[in-house]
Design a protein around this nucleic acid. Structure first.
Lengths: 202, 202
DNA sequence: CGAATTCTGTAGCGATTGATGCAGAATGGA
DNA sequence: TCCATTCTGCATCAATCGCTACAGAATTCG
């Protein structure tokens, strides 16, 4: 008595929602939440405003979904980096991933999570708070990973996981700003290597 | 035969241009270039749009002048820090100044130079380029100061002034992002202290 | 005084903002 | 076939955007 696999009723979509969301993400990445107008977004997505509202709700929800896509896509290196076996490996992978992600030739420079809504007007406050929460999550995950490293003896017992996490996050966000200023990738990688030379901050 | 000290002709201004510019700077600082609407700006400045245009030109020129005021005012710690006697003193003063400036209780959190136009739409590209140029200037000044330190023997001859400058600038910009995320001042200061513990990056 | 000059307030400009109403087109189910 | 459902394109909405025209108010100069 299985339910019949009835297909979706009504007229089917004339576009690929996944690809449209990818394009929207890139626009938000490059121009920020408020800097990305509906006309700019729908133009890049290749659909009309009506289709966008039908498929994604409104601009804020579109941004939310674009951010989700960014987190699991271009920024997916973060959770992967947390699975590195050592704290130093985690730190190095985070910085290397940040540099790769923020200086991709075919992508906007910088990090969507940093530059899409650092400061905003009234309409962008929700997006700004969303990004603040995500950045805070990132710091917490790294801190907890470093705490585990202390518990496991990978980091010395006197190491401060919160301090080390804040150090890595600060470097990553700083790197994102440098990348948005068009600082070349190799210079950033040299910086990251040097910044981890004294790990774990004596 | 001195020229007569003729006062300004015409109706005098009904407001203090300096204080109005200060208010505008704070609005740009908090909301960014595009996020600061004319209504928001003139409201905070306490003048009408007509008076703003008569006194400052247009929104872009107002931003330029507000940025000048920011550079010599709240961000004046930078050039002062460059006059510290040692490279380590310079680095510490820059980070401490950044932390103080980006976490002032009565001011917007973060750094205007970082968050006012990291990403922008069409109308904000000029402001974005202006800030990129200023951030690049800051890096150059610090690099030259560290080069001098190498020449004077304050830094070891094998030290890389460009790398050290990029390290400090990256930390400062990262700190600005943390401050915009409401990370408390004392945590940032502990981070700065730790980040300079291995100076000059072994 | 009158003339010239400069600033202020109101009112409004054209353009763009995010968001919708509506009719028609395209599908599945009965 | 006919209906219900869903998507699309066109036109448009009210609000806000940055900006300005215009007339009057306030000053200096002659």
């Amino acid at each position: 008595m299985g339910t019949k696999p009835s297909g979706p009723r009504g007229r089917p979509r004339g576009f690929d929602a996944d690809e449209a969301l990818e394009r929207a993400m890139l626009v938000f990445w490059e121009h920020g939440y408020e800097g990305a107008s509906l006309a700019c977004l729908t133009g890049a997505m290749g659909i009309s405003t009506t289709s966008m509202y039908a498929a994604f709700g409104n601009k804020q929800e579109l941004f939310r979904k674009a951010l989700d896509r960014y987190i699991t896509g271009p920024s997916g290196y973060l959770v992967r980096a947390l699975r590195e076996p050592t704290a130093l490996g985690v730190a190095g992978a985070i910085l290397a991933g940040t540099i790769r992600n923020t200086t991709r030739p075919a992508h906007p420079h910088g990090c969507l999570g940093v530059q899409a809504a650092l400061a905003a007007g009234d309409s962008g406050q929700e997006a700004r708070d969303l990004l603040i929460a995500w950045r805070d999550d990132g710091n917490s995950w790294i801190r907890e990973r470093f705490q585990r490293a202390v518990d496991e003896g990978d980091l010395p017992p006197e190491a401060d996981p919160g301090l080390l996490a804040r150090y890595i996050v600060t470097l990553a966000h700083g790197i994102a700003v440098q990348a948005a200023s068009n600082v070349p990738r190799d210079e950033l990688q040299r910086l990251a290597d040097a910044a981890l030379r004294g790990w774990p901050l004596s």
